[in-house]
Structure formats: structure tokens, C-alpha cells
Computed example of a mutant assay.
Amino acid sequence: MKRRQFIQYATAGLASSVVAGQAQAQSGGLSVRYLGHMCFLFTGSGQRILVNPFRSQGCTAGYRPPNVQTDLVMISSQLLDVGAVDVVPGNPKLLVEAGAYNVGGLKIQGVATDQDRVGGRRFGRNIAWRWNQGGLNLLHLGGTAAPITLEQKILIGSPDVVFIPVGGSARAYNPQEARQALQVLNAKMIVPMYFRTSAAKGECDLGGLDAFLSLMSGTPVRKGGNSLSMSRSDLPKEGSVIQVMNYA
């Protein structure tokens, strides 16, 4: 296995660099590239962040491995459909545990949640990642089927953009659970992920995207390709918008 640079928890001694990083993060914009499943590459504020690289099998069999250059990898669990860090080239830094971090001036919070509906007893813990990049407060929920607790909501704060699983299964929100989580989060932009696509081959217990979109009827939907540039001006002034990203 490749040697990775694990990052330790942030400490009080980093306070000055955190403040500087927050100022840097407020400028510019953000580029988001969808690599399939729960995997996205975020580029902005002088950093590239890859979340949840996967191995191509089952639900992801038809996707190309996310073999992209990045400065930092954040994974929600060490299961191979969300934490296959060995497919990523080079030696990027790696975040795998809940906690507060400062990485290159970006303040990042990993929030522990349960992956399943039985207190994590079946699949263990999931890490939801919250950070500010390109002037946007981002939340990638990873793979979770558990409701958001009050303590988790305090750590998560108020995201502008949330990346949320919607395909159901034993360790991801079904459409009804996703809608309930969104009512708690109150994000401006919703990016659905972790649903069944034509990439699935063999065993895959995810449902498709249509059931979620149908349940969320009344919320405007924007459809685009696998890459998206966004800034605060792209957020709706009132309510929410669903941004569907397609694999290409």
C-alpha cells in the first residue's frame, strides 16, 4: 500500500493560520468535478480536494477509477466504495478521522455519524466533511443512513452546498430520509449523489435518482455535466435548488 501523509488533529497553536486561511477561502470561486458515486474533486482557494475515491466494482463497476491529481484526500470510511485511496496517484495528504483540521489555510471539520440505521453496529462510523473553499460553505455527508443529531448539526453549521446520498440501501439515505436531513440542514444548493446509474453491474442495492427528484417536486432542478463552476452569486437568494451532476 502507498505511504500516505496522515494529518493530525488541529490544535490551538494553529489559530492564526486558521484565521488567515478563512480570509483566503472567502475569495475566488470553486470548480467541482463529479467522478461518480460519492467522489468529487473540488478546486479553489489554491487547493485541490478529492472526497471519497472508490474502487470500480458493483455499483461503481462502469466508472473509471478516480485517478486524478490532488493535494488532499478526505474519505468518509475505509470501505472500498468510499475509501480506495490506493487508486489516487502521488502522495496527497489524507484525512480519515473526525476532528478539526487546518490544511493549507483551509479549516476543515470531520463530523462522525453512523453509516447505518442501527447505531453503526453493522457498518461502523461515517465521516461527514465540512469546509469552506472558494467562499462557499460545503458539506459532503458521505454514506450515512442515520438522522442528523443536534450535536452533529452544531458541528456542521449552516452549509451553502450539501452533497447528500439519496439512493437508499443499508447505509445511505433513501429519498424520504434525505428530505428529512435537508429540512435540518437548510442548504441553498443540494447535490444528490450515491444513487444507482448505468455504471452498476452485478450486485448493487442502490435506487435511482428519479424517486428523490419526484419527492422533491417543487424544488427547482438544474441539470449539467460532470463539471461545475460555482460562487456565492450562483446560490438562490431564497429557498433551495437541486443541482444534478452527470458522469461523463
Rank of each mutant, 00 (worst) to 15 (best):
N186D: 03
M216K: 07
V85A: 03
D114K: 01
S17C: 15
L35V: 05
I156K: 03
G208V: 01
P92E: 10
V68A: 04
A128W: 02
A187N: 04
R64W: 10
Q180Y: 13
S217G: 14
S27N: 14
G207E: 11
V162P: 09
A248M: 12
V85E: 00
L228C: 04
G119F: 00
N174W: 11
Q5A: 13
A61T: 11
Q8G: 13
A200F: 00
G168Y: 02
T219V: 14
F6W: 10
V85S: 05
A25W: 08
G239N: 07
V68W: 09
S169D: 03
A181D: 00
F123P: 02
C204G: 04
K153Y: 12
L14H: 14
R48N: 08
G157I: 08
R4H: 12
L79Q: 14
Q133C: 14
G239T: 05
P89T: 13
T60I: 01
G58Y: 12
A12P: 03
K107T: 15
L209Y: 01
N52S: 03
A146W: 11
G105T: 01
D114L: 08
Y63F: 15
F54S: 02
G36Y: 04
R117T: 04
L228Y: 07
V191R: 02
I49F: 02
N126I: 00
S17D: 15
L209Q: 00
Q5F: 13
D210A: 13
L185D: 04
S169Y: 02
G13E: 11
Q152T: 07
R33I: 14
